[in-house]
Design a protein around this nucleic acid. Structure first.
Length: 783
DNA sequence: ATCAGCTGTCATTTG
DNA sequence: GTCAAATGACAGCTG
């Protein structure tokens, strides 16, 4: 009796408080139903509350104050509350029962005042309900439910007319309330004219409930989506009354309570039989569309994994969109949540609900949420053929797949592919040509400019420097030639700065430096474009990427090794490679002589001045002579020799004069054999020195050019791969479109007898020339 | 002290 | 055959 008192009292008081807070006047008149001893025990000697106290309490509750505030402590007992509950007003209220059972609370806790305002606040603010993870043991729940039932029965007896009214208004939903009182606290309506206000109140409640439902679904969908039991959803509008009351604290609670309730009250079977089954739905963006039922049907038809639903190649192709799949999977849950929330709040139209119910029922709860079904182009599909298969998923797929596998269809698809290929190949090739090499040239031009800027900023006026400072610098060149103006990999003063070719080759260093990232970008693009390609393409691309990585490892790092077998003579093979124009016997590779000739003999600055000085210090030259030279200009060895032998020409002249001029010059002077030998050696060494510089420059250019070409070829290859993927994707779309057309055509075709044509017995043939010619259906007896 | 890069030089090859 | 250029190899210098 004690526990009866507890449940009875708490439940009733809870109800009364909630009703009163809504401004509903309720006359519970509890006292007559209570034994005098119990009543006295409940109310106690201090049960009398003043009207002021009650209003204070009510104000606190309405202000959202925590029920454990000091002022509320004075009203913390149920007995005290009972005193004024009978005069509350009952308007409309929806009570969500806390999952935690009442008896758990200790008597000294202000359980009601704690819990009820919390619920009120939760309802009013529509905040997500924190899941109450733990459920108490079954016995306590049963006790709780039993007590509440008793409370409700008591309430019914207390104001039967009101109850009857809203029961009648609510229709079947009230039966749910009646039959499952333990699921949730009842939805109570009692106004002066309940039948009029019912819908309005209900709509308000829906509005309040909606976000909470969504939030709860969101909270629960992450982990419990697929395991959602079928009984948690009532897919009809009439049933939404009870469903929308089904505002569970948590989904787990809801499930548990439902299961328990159904087991206890024998409602499980009606639920599962008559109510639509809520199953995981593959979310689509078309869910909001009212035509989504069709799409859903197709989606589910593809989802169910029946191999015959789609051609094998298509499934293969579809299976190879990992990125899209991934993104779709990311989208799924949100869409499911949205969809479910729509269903919960009754936003979807009944026919949709029914259609979806059919789909749900025909689907398996373990439907793999394949996102690739989203890529199906279902636009334009006539609903008829889809609806025709709606009731039986086994009707459509088999013949259709056979059709699609048929050689004729494949041939037609091939024709389409060919047409497609013919359509884009020339322009694509042209675009490739343009993009690839135009970009290449653009990049080279940019790099030329960049190099010019870099040289101007980073190494200001090396020419100038050479001309201005060479007087202080010593030459150590044996030939006495200034070679700093000439280009060398280390010497930035490239005399062919005007030569864009040289710049391009040296600039190719920048290209290659950025080429890796460039290629990487392209490869990333390739990865992006990977979605939608078929397995073959993916495998091939992966293989090619592996090869590319290997190639990059070789070409990027060990390009020296690649340089060796290069056949420079085969210019046709390397057509378009800018560095090739410097390959071969290009004797004008470096012609900086105009500036060099202006440089006085022995004034060429070199970095070897110091070493030359060291050389000189070793050599048996007079110290005074050496010092005088070092003061003015550093003389090279050949320069000193020429000075020693009194050669009348400068080394610069000796080296740079053309052969004819040089010979005529020699013939004009009477020179000793020693002098002639020295002059020829100076010329030879000077020539060879420049030649060596040119040679090294050329080698460097070749190397850089190869790196540049590697980068360019990689970009080209990535572009080609991307084009290939796009083409495959396009082909896939065409195939899907063909499939849809096939479905449409067969859905409209009828045989001579008027019966629908079986796709397994008929085939569609395209006339070879004819877009004008309609598709012909011929009986395919071979089938 | 060591090393990588640059440069000059020589011998050889090539056109 | 001569010559200039190219190139491989080597050595010295420098940072």
């Amino acid at each position: 009796m004690l526990h009866l008192k507890k449940y009875f009292t708490e439940g009733l008081i809870q109800m009364a408080i909630l009703l009163s807070l809504c401004g509903v006047r309720v006359d519970v008149e509890l006292e007559p139903y209570l034994p005098s001893s119990l009543h006295e025990m409940i109310l106690g000697p201090t049960s009398a509350l003043t009207e002021t106290q009650f209003h204070n309490l009510r104000n606190h509750l309405e202000e959202g104050l925590h029920p454990k505030s000091v002022e509320l402590d004075g009203f913390s007992t149920a007995q005290r509350l009972l005193g004024w509950v009978p005069h509350a007003e009952l308007e409309t209220w929806l009570v969500q029962r806390e999952p935690e059972p009442l008896p758990i609370r200790s008597p000294d806790q202000a359980s009601l005042l704690e819990r009820i305002p919390a619920e009120i606040e939760r309802e009013l603010t529509a905040l997500p309900v924190e899941p109450q993870a733990e459920l108490e043991d079954e016995e306590e729940k049963e006790d709780t439910e039993t007590s509440l039932q008793e409370c409700f029965r008591l309430l019914e007896e207390t104001f039967p007319s009101t109850e009857e009214q809203w029961l009648n208004d609510a229709g079947g939903g009230v039966e749910d309330l009646e039959s499952q009182p333990s699921d949730r606290d009842p939805l109570l309506f009692s106004t002066d004219n309940p039948s009029m206000d019912f819908e309005l109140h209900w709509q308000d409640l829906l509005n309040i409930m909606e976000p909470e439902n969504t939030d709860m679904d969101m909270a629960s969908s992450g982990h419990n989506l697929n395991s959602r039991p079928s009984g948690t959803f009532r897919g009809n509008v009439s049933g939404t009354l009870s469903n929308c009351c089904d505002n569970p604290a948590t989904e787990a609670d809801q499930e548990t309570l439902l299961m328990e309730t159904h087991l206890q009250h024998g409602l499980l079977e009606p639920l599962t039989e008559s109510e639509p089954v809520l199953l995981p739905l593959t979310p689509t963006t078309e869910l909001d569309d009212h035509n989504s039922a069709l799409n859903t049907q197709d989606t589910l038809n593809n989802i169910d994994g029946h191999p015959l639903n789609s051609p094998p190649d298509q499934t293969d192709l579809l299976a190879e969109e990992p990125l899209e799949d991934f993104s779709m999977e990311l989208m799924e849950e949100d869409n499911i949540i949205t969809f479910l929330s729509q269903i919960y709040v009754g936003r979807m139209e009944p026919e949709h609900l029914s259609g979806i119910d059919v789909n749900f029922q025909s689907s398996n709860s373990t439907i793999p949420l394949e996102g690739n079904v989203m890529t199906q182009d279902l636009a334009g599909s006539p609903p008829s053929h889809l609806l025709g298969y709606e009731d039986n998923e086994d009707d459509l797929p088999i013949p259709l797949s056979d059709l699609l596998e048929d050689a004729t269809i494949l041939d037609e698809i091939r024709l389409l592919d060919q047409a497609l290929e013919e359509g884009f190949s020339p322009e694509m090739a042209a675009r490739l040509e343009d993009e690839s090499y135009f970009n290449h040239e653009l990049a080279e031009q940019e790099i030329c400019n960049k190099i010019a800027v870099t040289e101007n900023h980073g190494r200001p006026s090396t020419h100038h420097h050479g001309n201005s400072t060479d007087c202080e610098d010593e030459l150590d060149s044996d030939s006495g030639l200034s070679l700093d103006f000439s280009h060398s990999p280390a010497s930035p003063c490239t005399s062919e700065a005007s030569s864009c070719s040289s710049s391009s080759t040296s600039s190719s260093f920048y290209v290659s430096a950025t080429g890796s990232s460039f290629s990487k970008d392209d490869e990333e693009d390739s990865e992006e474009g990977l979605a939608g390609s078929d397995m073959e393409a993916v495998m091939m691309i992966k293989q090619e990427e592996l090869e590319e990585e290997e190639m990059g490892a070789v070409g990027g790092e060990n390009h020296e090794n690649k340089l060796v077998p290069v056949d420079y003579s085969d210019h046709s093979l390397f057509h378009g490679f800018s560095w090739l124009e410097h390959i071969g016997h290009d004797h004008t590779y470096n012609m900086p002589w105009s500036s060099a000739c202006s440089i006085p003999l022995g004034k060429m600055p070199t970095k070897h001045a110091k070493s030359a000085r060291q050389h000189d210090s070793v050599k048996p030259y007079p110290q005074s002579f050496s010092r005088s030279i070092s003061e003015n200009k550093i003389w090279s060895r050949d320069e000193r020799r020429s000075q020693t032998l009194k050669i009348p020409f400068s080394n610069e002249v000796i080296v740079n004069l053309p052969v004819e001029d040089f010979n005529s010059l020699l013939s004009n002077y009477q020179l000793s054999e020693e002098q002639l030998t020295l002059i020829k050696d100076i010329r030879r060494r000077g020539k060879n020195k420049i030649a060596a510089q040119n040679c090294r420059k050329r080698k460097q250019d070749v190397l850089l050019g190869l790196e540049d070409d590697v980068s360019s070829l990689r970009r080209h290859r990535s572009r080609l791969l991307r084009e290939k993927r796009e083409t495959l994707r396009h082909l896939q779309e065409i195939r899907r479109h063909m499939e849809m057309l096939y479905k449409q055509v067969f859905s409209r075709l009828t045989s001579e007898e008027g019966s629908p044509m079986d796709a397994t017995e008929y085939m569609l043939h395209f006339k070879p020339n004819g877009r004008n010619s309609k598709k012909q259906s011929q009986k395919d007896k071979e089938k």
